[in-house]
Structures are given as C-alpha cells and as structure tokens.
C-alpha cells in the first residue's frame, strides 16, 4: 500500500533519509527500503499513479508557487506541480525563484535569527508580487512563510496545493 505524504521534505526523509539512517542495521535497513519504495509525495503520487486532472478552475485566484527545496531537489518533482497548476489557472500564476524559505526543521528554532533572515529574503520576493496566496507542496515551508507574512501584517496567505486542486478554499486552516 502506498504511503502518501503532503510534504516534499517528509517524503525525502523517508525515501532518502531513512535508508541512510538505518544503513548499519540490516533488518531495519530492509524495512526502511521497503517503506521508501512505497512512499510518495502527494503531487508525485497524483502524477505517477493516477490520471488526476483538476475538475475545477481557479482562474480568479492570484497566487505564487513556491517549489520547496526537498520536493524539487530531494525528489526531483519540479514539473508536475506546475502542470497541475497550469490546468487549474490557465491564465497564469507566479513561479517564485528556486530559493529556500529558511525553515530547515529544528534549524528554525536552534538558529532562529539565520532562519528568519533567509525567510525575510523570501518574504520580500513574495510581497513584491500581486498575489493573495502562496501555494506549495510542503506544509513546513507554508507554516514558516505564513508565520512570517502574518508577523509582517501582510494580507497574503498560504495553502497546500491540494486544497485548490480539489476545489476547496485555499488556506492553512
């Protein structure tokens, strides 16, 4: 049975991190490899294993797409989200440059000033666009970005890509 996770970073950890982590324990390594093989990031799953096409249109939605580092670089999932979003918003949307949001797990707490400095750069890029939403395939990036946007008093909000694709209101909650 496939395991589908809503974040590129989680999928990268399970697929690449777990086998590395258990590399010295044959029994656990085997389990990790089995799990790695059946774990998919959400969009990756849609692309590889289904014939999903968005049945809704969100032409009125002004949004930017943030390609999370682990999705793009860790899993190599670059074109698939864009293909889906092109169908969802045929009139176009903003593709943010391939840059990190500064989250990095415990790094965001342990080295909060550095994490925040990286985030600030990202927020400047986002706020320069005429958009209402940032969409991504990674919940951790989205929490980091929306946390920063809210602190700045920005009107822009974040949403996982799945909500608008399924015809739901975008948003984190």
């Amino acid at each position: 049975m496939p395991v589908i996770v809503p974040s590129g970073s989680c999928a990268t950890m399970i697929r690449h991190g777990y086998p590395e982590l258990f590399s010295e324990d044959a029994a656990w390594l085997e389990r990790a490899q089995k799990l790695a093989k059946r774990t998919y990031e959400f969009v990756e799953f849609l692309d590889r294993r289904t014939s999903f096409v968005p049945r809704v249109s969100a032409a009125e939605l002004r949004f930017a797409y943030h390609a999370s580092c682990h999705l793009a670089r860790g899993l190599g999932v670059r074109a698939q989200p864009l293909n889906l979003l092109n169908q969802l918003a045929p009139d176009g949307f903003v593709i943010l440059p391939q840059d990190c949001c500064g989250f990095g797990g415990a790094f965001a707490l342990e080295y909060a000033p550095i994490s925040s400095a990286i985030l600030d750069r990202r927020l400047d890029q986002i706020e320069a666009e005429e958009i209402d939403f940032v969409l991504a395939c990674d919940v951790s990036c989205l929490i980091q970005i929306e946390g920063g946007l809210r602190r700045r008093g920005s009107h822009i909000r974040c949403s996982h890509i799945a909500l608008p694709l399924a015809g739901f209101e975008p948003g984190l909650r």
């Binding site: 965001a108 909060a112 925040s116 985030l119 929306e146 946390g147 809210r150 602190r151």
Partner: peptide, 21 residues
C-alpha cells in the same frame, strides 16, 4: 487572527519573528 503570537520557551525562538499556527 487565530495564529499564536508568543510560544513558551524553548519554542519562543520561533515566535520571535514568526507567528505560529
């Protein structure tokens, strides 16, 4: 607006610059 402005230590490093859901 429903997001947390200040987390207790040791998580307060997050809310020094960011809100938290």
């Amino acid at each position: 607006e429903s997001w947390i402005r200040r987390l207790p230590p040791p998580l307060d490093a997050w809310t020094s610059t960011r809100d938290f859901p």
